[in-house]
């Protein structure tokens, strides 16, 4: 993974009291942050303000209050900056009568690349995004995954130094997901800066160990996985299990692990474990299950959803 490198020229993104209002609705609320170049994840539940923040960063929106600088420049109507950034939007929007090749080539031309070079670069970008096979078919015939690859290619075609992906893994199949994660990591290794937004923690965790956490338009935390884990270290986690012998298992878990509470369902088969040490729990649960003689048929953590984590963080602030 590529850890962000401080002091590599101007900051990648620098905001001061950045606020964006849609009428009276807050899109982004008083965000002040400065992050160095590197690969960053922008994490937040749906509706948390990620897309608004990305649109401010890419100059599609103007701040209501405060400032935003990207690569040392204010993005609104800054044509020079647009040459240096690539944006892969979340929305599944296209000129569906074009082929992927025509679409990417056209956007290369709009980036100021001459006709012959635009053709070459479009082919290269589409190959990089894994879209060569279908690039001459009209986009209207594409699957969701194909369209996603096309969007990725257009963001890369002008070889930007900073690439921004808004929820790029939405709708991709496992292979596409793996390839896209690899692509982001490769871009990082090539020295590009990348910002990837997502509402799924483990997806972004596979790409980078540096995050911005946003919720309800507010920046909750920024830094590496370790620093955010430290913030979250005492956050309670709920683990839901279904097992035969649930009562015996629950008693063993309470006795042997740092478990706050265990609730047994009325049917005596389901139990909900509440712990502040999920790592310790998962490291030892298999042994305890085996020793207790219980037969576990299902186990899941209800806190996988980022919203639960953010709810906890918001409550702490």
């Amino acid at each position: 993974m590529t850890t962000p490198t401080p002091n590599a020229g101007s900051a990648l993104i620098e905001t001061r009291s950045l606020t964006k209002l849609y009428g009276v609705v807050n899109g982004v609320n008083d965000v002040t942050v400065s992050i160095p170049r590197g690969v960053w994840g922008l994490l937040g539940p749906n509706g948390s303000g990620k897309s608004t923040l990305l649109k401010l960063i890419t100059g599609q929106l103007r701040p209501t209050e405060g400032t935003v600088r990207v690569l040392g420049r204010q993005p609104w109507n800054d044509l020079e900056l647009y040459r240096r950034i690539g944006f892969c939007p979340e929305q599944d929007a296209f000129y569906s009568f074009l082929s992927a090749f025509e679409f990417v080539r056209m956007l290369a031309r709009l980036s100021g690349i001459d006709a012959a070079e635009a053709r070459r670069r479009a082919e290269v970008a589409l190959e990089r995004a894994g879209a060569t096979e279908f690039m001459h078919r009209p986009i209207v015939t594409y699957s969701k995954g194909m369209r996603q690859r096309t969007k990725v290619a257009q963001a890369l075609v002008h070889d930007p130094e900073f690439v921004i992906f808004d929820e790029p893994l939405t709708g991709t199949d496992p292979v596409g997901r793996h390839e896209l994660i690899e692509l982001v990591r490769t871009l990082g290794r090539e020295g590009k800066s990348v910002l990837v937004s997502s509402h799924v923690l483990h997806e972004v965790e596979a790409m980078t160990d540096a995050f911005l956490l946003i919720h309800a338009g507010r920046l909750l935390a920024s830094g590496t996985v370790e620093s955010i884990r430290a913030v979250l270290s005492d956050a309670p986690h709920n683990i839901v299990m279904r097992a035969e012998g649930a009562r015996e298992l629950g008693a063993r878990l309470l006795a042997e692990l740092a478990v706050d509470s265990v609730d047994i369902d009325e049917d005596q088969r389901g139990l909900t474990v509440r712990t502040r040490d999920p790592r310790g729990f998962f490291a030892n649960v298999a042994r305890i299950v085996a020793e207790s003689g219980a037969r576990v048929v299902e186990m899941k953590t209800s806190d996988d959803d980022l919203a639960a984590v953010f709810k906890y963080l918001v409550a702490r602030i």
């Binding site: 100059g59 044509l79 944006f87 939007p89 929007a93 956007l107 709009l110 980036s111 257009q154």
Partner: peptide, 15 residues
């Protein structure tokens, strides 16, 4: 409405 304006407005072309 097609939300394609994003592609045009993030390129170095004066609006």
């Amino acid at each position: 409405e097609g939300r394609t304006l994003t592609y045009l407005f993030t390129r170095p072309v004066p609006k």
